Structure formats: structure tokens, C-alpha cells
Amino acid sequence: MKKPLILVTNDDGITAPGLRSLIKVMKEIGEVVVVAPDSPQSGMGHAITIDSTLYSKQVVIDQNEGAPLEYSCSGTPADCVKLALQELLDRKPDICVSGINHGSNSSINVIYSGTMSAAIEAGIEGIPAIGFSLCDYSWEADFQYTTKAVRKIVKEALEHGIPRGTVLNVNFPKTDSEPKGIKVCRQARANWKEQFDKRTSPTGKDYYWLSGVFELLDKGEDTDEWALANGYVSVVPTEFDLTAHHAIGQINNWNLNE
């Protein structure tokens, strides 16, 4: 049987250790093609390039035999998936995996995530898609304890499929041992209490650094934040239909047509 075609992407850039770790596992499962940003694109959300030129080129990162076909792209993670599907691949991939991100994409962080936006872009095109993240922002983060769960989740997704209109947001706890297990969760209710660090350049111009404190507002034990805090891998099925269906009836009671 033909091996599944796996599109691999990320938002930390094509040389990121998390991406290289993900590629290694995907090579065990199927035929891999990598299309990833040529530089870090963290926090880009679902941004796409529409007012400047988009570039892509084939690159060789892995010199070993059996290395996958790889392309770098000057655009965002969503651009990478669009370009892969429209121009670079010779057939539709069986699955798209994004990551492994250096840093958490749990809870409200999913809104800003380039990693998850790449997965969502694939999901919009009807391709099963998964975003993987490790709760460690260090470039030297240790990804060895992600391997087993990544392999398991991707194989299960290929075998059973992912419900249409849904992608999986998978986060790994920062740990020095194997996670306790995998929990399917809901997204925790949380936000960032943000502030800007205002400074002045030598030329007298003001500039700002965004900073903030993560505030968890949810005490539920069925959330991604609870799972991660207790040593589990969290899997959140995530929809990209943003309609608040429960609110339609209430809004219809407004006097909108009078």
C-alpha cells in the first residue's frame, strides 16, 4: 500500500529543533514533505501575505539518506500550507502536522498561534490536521518525551480520521520523564493581563515591548491547563467555525428590523 503523504510545517522556522523532531517521527509513518517559514513566525495567528511578494525555494537541511523534500517559504504558517497545497505538492496530503512548537498553545494561546493556524488552514481544505506544542519556550527544549504520543496520535488520526471542521490542538507538559498519559480536554478559560514596557531609543523615539501575566480563570479538571499541570498530554478538538450558535436565538430577539 502507498504510504500516507504527510505535510509538515511550523511557525518557529524551518531549522527549529521542534520541527526536526516532528519530521523524524513522521518519516516512520509516511512520505514527508516539509513546507515551513524561512524565519520565526510565532504569534502570527492566521495572517496571510497579500500585499508583498511570496518566495519559496527547495532547501536541504537533513543530509542523511532518505531525507524528506523540504521547502522554505518567506511567508506565514498559513501561507506555507496554502502554497504547499496549491503549488508544491503533487497530490493532496493525507494529513498535515504542525510544530512541534517551542512554547504552549493551550487555552487562549490558540487564538494567536501560528502553529495552530497552519493546522486550521489545512483543516479548512478538508485535510486532517494536528498542531503540536511543548510547554517549553527554550530553543534547546528537550523533545524526547513527545515522540511516543506524537506517533500514537498521528497513527490514530490516520486510521480513524478527524471530524470534518475540526483540528486537534495537542500540548505537551514540560517534563523530565514520559507524560502520565493523554487526555482529551476542553480549552480552559483564561486570558493574558497584558502591559507594554515603554522605552526610548537613542534617537528619541518611543518603542514598546509587549509583556503580560497569564491568568487562569478556570478550575475545571477537564481542561487542557489542568491536564498539563498534572503531567498529561492535552488534546483539544478545535473548531474553526466561529459562529456562537447558542447566541443566535438571543440576538434574533433584538429589534433589528424595526
Rank of each mutant, 00 (worst) to 15 (best):
R186A: 08
T175Y: 02
F172S: 00
S117L: 00
E125D: 10
T115C: 15
I124Q: 07
E221D: 13
G126F: 03
A227I: 07
T147G: 02
S211T: 15
S107T: 13
Y112P: 02
Q195E: 07
L134K: 01
V233R: 08
I153E: 05
G123W: 00
P173K: 03
S201N: 12
K193G: 09
K155S: 12
E178R: 00
K174N: 15
G220W: 01
E194I: 02
F143C: 01
L158N: 03
A157S: 15
A119Q: 03
V184Y: 13
D218P: 08
V110D: 00
K193R: 14
C185F: 04
L216S: 09
T175C: 09
A157C: 13
N169A: 10
L217M: 15
D142P: 07
K152R: 15
P173G: 03
Q195A: 14
K152P: 01
E194M: 14
S107H: 06
L217Q: 14
G114P: 05
E159H: 14
S201I: 07
R186T: 05
V110H: 02
N191C: 14
R189E: 08
K155F: 00
K193I: 05
A118Q: 04
Q195Y: 14
D206I: 06
G114V: 02
D222Q: 09
E225W: 06
P179M: 00
V170E: 03
V167T: 09
G126D: 01
F196E: 11
T223V: 08
I124T: 06
I153H: 10
Y137C: 05
Y137S: 10
W192I: 15
